[in-house]
Design a protein around this nucleic acid. Structure first.
Lengths: 235, 235
DNA sequence: TCGTCCATTTGCGGTGGCGCAAAGGGCCTC
DNA sequence: GAGGCCCTTTGCGCCACCGCAAATGGACGA
């Protein structure tokens, strides 16, 4: 195990990637795990970097964003505690396809490509678990593609908020609070529009009392209303 | 091996999914492979179907399309010989996320979820190969997302044609011919626009002598021009 | 308490591309 | 060879959405 905050088998066994592994295998994993603490607004890796590792966020939040050869940018996804990131680069061309930045102070585990490959070769369960994770990501990406291609901005924003509250929502007295710090620009980059359009829509919803923004954090008071906008065609 | 056209180890060993396997393992695979011949315009599986198999197209072409709860439809991808499809459903919720239709007469291999899972558990190389395949798909999906979110229709169409010619292009005296039968509507559903817009753009390009449509097949005479439209911002 | 910085809001104008309707144009069937 | 079917083209009007500029509003630091 490499330097960093302490952790135990339990920290790993609860993760999707290492589900169903015996304690001795977990120990093997731990032996090659690197653990790091990261400050807020740190670039973890750059799009195009060649020295690839698989990452797992233990604590905090991370934004994965992709920039095109023109300036065009999208947020691929936000990462919360317990989620993997930077794994797509593994086993393909060996280059990260996007940038990763911490939005808060964070703690991550990571593994080198070769170490992880050895682990997967020896323990196919890990590879199968990884397939499950990547499969879900693909489904999500395909749904976003369909939304982007067929639905108007308002619906897309609604779906984005619903997805985010499912991923990182915490119940509070005021409603469901999304635990990522979100700027308008971030939301725009997720659902493929401009921060202006997002601002207009969110302001409307805010005035209607459906949600509130405080301190770069969104709290949704009336999920059902958002859901209605997302589903129904007659806004 | 289940009934159907004959095939041998060689047919499998050249496939990405079974790369690097020993002959004896290939025999194991063959033992649980189902092979089918399919007529043109056959529905292979429906979005939402629960009885899931992993598919591999040996010959012909298949369109994977997703329909939303509203009528909105997108083409997720076209499948050519040697490519896998319907694999995302495995290991996730066990339901196909899209429809699959043959565009031509076709031959496919397929495996049941449980058989494939057994194979992967026993031979981690298969699982790792699958990860590579799925990883590429995710990268492609992310690139499409960015394009859809940031680029105007003309550029998206250009990129779509470039991708298709890379995937299924064959050199001919007249240029690169895309071996899928493509209707305007298909192209529109790939790049998130309407068949009208596609028609307008393609007509322009056709008049410029950059490409030709014959018999539902596209032949690109001047790839470089298409490339220029795709890359450059000043059309 | 004031000034600076950053994020957000809001107004206004322009337009890309959608939507529909109607007119071609192949191809197949009878 | 006449009719029907499907795909495509083309014209026209319109509207959702973008793009910019300027105003507003906190948060932070001196």
């Amino acid at each position: 195990m490499k330097p960093g905050p302490q952790f135990s088998r339990n920290d790993l066994s609860s993760l999707d990637l290492f589900e169903g592994l015996s304690p001795s295998v977990l120990d093997e994993v731990i032996a090659v795990t690197r653990c790091r603490a990261l400050a807020r607004d740190t670039r973890i890796f750059n799009q195009g970097d060649g020295y690839v590792r698989a990452h797992l966020l233990v604590e905090g939040s991370v934004r994965i964003a992709q920039t095109g050869s023109d300036g065009g940018q999208i947020v691929v996804r936000f990462i919360g505690p317990g989620e993997m990131f930077g794994t797509v680069a593994l086993f393909t061309d060996g280059k990260y396809p996007a940038d990763a930045d911490t939005l808060t102070d964070a703690i991550e585990f990571s593994w080198s490509e070769t170490d992880l490959l050895k682990l997967m070769s020896a323990h196919s369960q890990i590879a199968i678990n990884a397939l499950k994770i990547v499969g879900k990501r693909i489904q999500e990406a395909q749904n976003r593609l369909r939304e982007l291609a067929t639905q108007p901005v308002e619906r897309r924003i609604a779906h984005t908020l619903l997805r985010l509250s499912k991923q990182a929502g915490r119940d509070t007295p005021d409603g469901v609070k999304i635990s990522f710090p979100l700027r308008r620009k971030d939301i725009a980059d997720i659902c493929g529009t401009t921060l202006f359009s997002v601002s207009r829509v969110l302001t409307t919803w805010e005035k209607a009392g459906w949600l509130a923004t405080r301190d770069q954090h969104l709290t949704i008071a009336k999920i059902s209303e958002i859901q209605r906008v997302g589903d129904n065609e007659t806004a």
